[in-house]
């Protein structure tokens, strides 16, 4: 039975903890962009954490960990959102296995709250693009992560930027 686990659990744990520690910012942004209530955020975090754990044996060190984590987390968030919409609040094994807790939430900038609200209102693909764009990913990386051509991506990015700039002007003028 021991031989069945290709990767030693202790190594897997180390990688998992270092990912969670080093890239919690990425996870937080994605969770905020794809879920609203604290309960949903808990649920999505559990799902992403489990998927990251499962993905560790396939991770190749030549790849960038941040890109890998973004990929797994975004895919999970999109799938999770679809599942939530389809099945509503279904009792899942993850909900039974409560194994996370919240730490202190950060003091937040009002403009950042506004920006998150705007991102949440985008469709799920545009939301992913907005997150990647704001986090400084290149067109090539984004194209690979999302699975659309760079040309198509450029059009979407142009539209998203224009939309956010327009919304920011309204926000500055009217506070909405």
């Amino acid at each position: 039975m021991k031989q069945r686990y290709e990767m030693k659990e202790v190594v897997r744990k180390e990688i998992f903890h270092s990912w969670l520690q080093s890239y919690q910012g990425i996870l937080y942004k994605i969770i905020r962009a794809y879920s609203s209530s604290p309960m949903d955020q808990d649920d999505l975090f559990q799902e992403i954490a489990l998927q990251l754990w499962r993905s560790i044996p396939s991770f190749r060190s030549e790849a960038k960990a941040s890109t890998w984590i973004y990929r797994v987390a975004l895919n999970t968030a999109i799938a999770w959102q679809g599942k939530e919409k389809k099945h509503g609040k279904q009792e899942s094994i993850d909900k039974v296995e409560h194994w996370i807790y919240h730490a202190e939430s950060a003091n937040r900038d009002e403009r950042l709250e506004w920006l998150y609200q705007e991102i949440v209102m985008l469709n799920k693909v545009d939301r992913s693009i907005a997150l990647l764009l704001l986090d400084g990913f290149s067109y090539q990386e984004m194209s690979e992560l999302i699975g659309i051509t760079e040309n198509n991506l450029a059009v979407k990015i142009h539209r998203i930027k224009k939309h956010l700039i327009l919304k920011s002007e309204k926000y500055e003028r009217h506070g909405v």
Binding site: Q24, G25, L27, I100, A103
Partner: peptide, 10 residues
């Protein structure tokens, strides 16, 4: 935005 710990695995 700061990167304070928001979640932790227990």
């Amino acid at each position: 935005q700061n990167n304070q710990i928001m979640y932790a695995i227990d």
